[in-house]
Amino acid sequence: TFELKGKVGKVVKIAEDHYLVEVEGDKWIAYSDEKLSLGDRVMVVDVDGLKLKVKRIP
């Protein structure tokens, strides 16, 4: 999972307290300090167990 840091993915689902992002064909639970929208491109900035911390990228 640490090899996911720096990888780019996209938001595929928005849940009440987390996001579902697809990175390299796999779906992961993710969270972010900013509000994300469906389809946003994101970069993995940290890995916390099986959850990814992501940030939006242009």
Rank of each mutant, 00 (worst) to 15 (best):
D48Y: 14
I57H: 06
W28H: 05
T1N: 15
K35E: 07
M43K: 04
A30W: 00
D17S: 10
G25N: 08
V45I: 15
D48C: 12
D40M: 13
L4C: 03
K7V: 02
L20E: 05
Y31S: 06
H18R: 09
W28G: 02
F2N: 15
K7F: 03
V8G: 04
E16A: 10
T1M: 15
L38E: 07
S32P: 05
K5P: 06
A15T: 08
D48H: 11
V45M: 14
K5T: 13
D46I: 02
V54L: 04
A15W: 11
A30V: 03
V45T: 09
E24W: 01
V45G: 05
G6Y: 01
G25Q: 13
I29R: 15
V23M: 03
R56M: 09
W28P: 01
V47E: 04
I14S: 10
Y19A: 10
V44W: 01
L36E: 02
K7T: 02
K7P: 00
D17R: 15
Y19P: 04
L50T: 12
S32T: 06
A15Y: 11
G9S: 02
L20I: 07
R56L: 05
R41A: 08
W28N: 02
D40E: 10
D33C: 13
G49T: 09
L50C: 07
V23P: 00
K10Q: 11
L50R: 06
Y19R: 03
K27Q: 09
S37G: 09
E24K: 03
K5D: 14
V42S: 03
G6Q: 01
K10I: 11
L36D: 00
G25R: 08
R41I: 12
L36R: 02
G39T: 10
T1W: 15
L50A: 06
W28E: 02
E24F: 03
V44L: 02
G6F: 02
G39N: 09
K10Y: 13
V47K: 03
L50I: 09
K10D: 13
K51F: 10
F2P: 15
A30P: 00
V45Y: 14
D48F: 13
D33L: 09
M43Y: 04
L52I: 04
T1D: 15
V21G: 01
F2M: 15
A30D: 00
V44G: 01
S32R: 15
K53H: 10
I14G: 07
V54R: 00
V21E: 00
R56F: 08
I14D: 04
L20N: 10
R56H: 05
D26S: 14
I57W: 10
E16N: 11
L38M: 07
L4T: 03
K5F: 15
F2R: 05
K27M: 10
G9M: 02
L50K: 05
K55H: 11
K55V: 12
P58G: 14
W28Q: 02
D17P: 14
L4I: 07
V54D: 00
S37D: 07
K13M: 12
L20S: 07
K10V: 11
T1C: 15
G39S: 11
V12G: 08
S32L: 07
E24D: 04
D40P: 01
P58A: 06
I57V: 06
A30N: 01
S32N: 10
E3Y: 04
P58Q: 07
V21Y: 01
A30S: 06
V54G: 01
T1Q: 15
K7M: 05
D48W: 15
L4Q: 03
K5I: 14
D46V: 03
P58W: 06
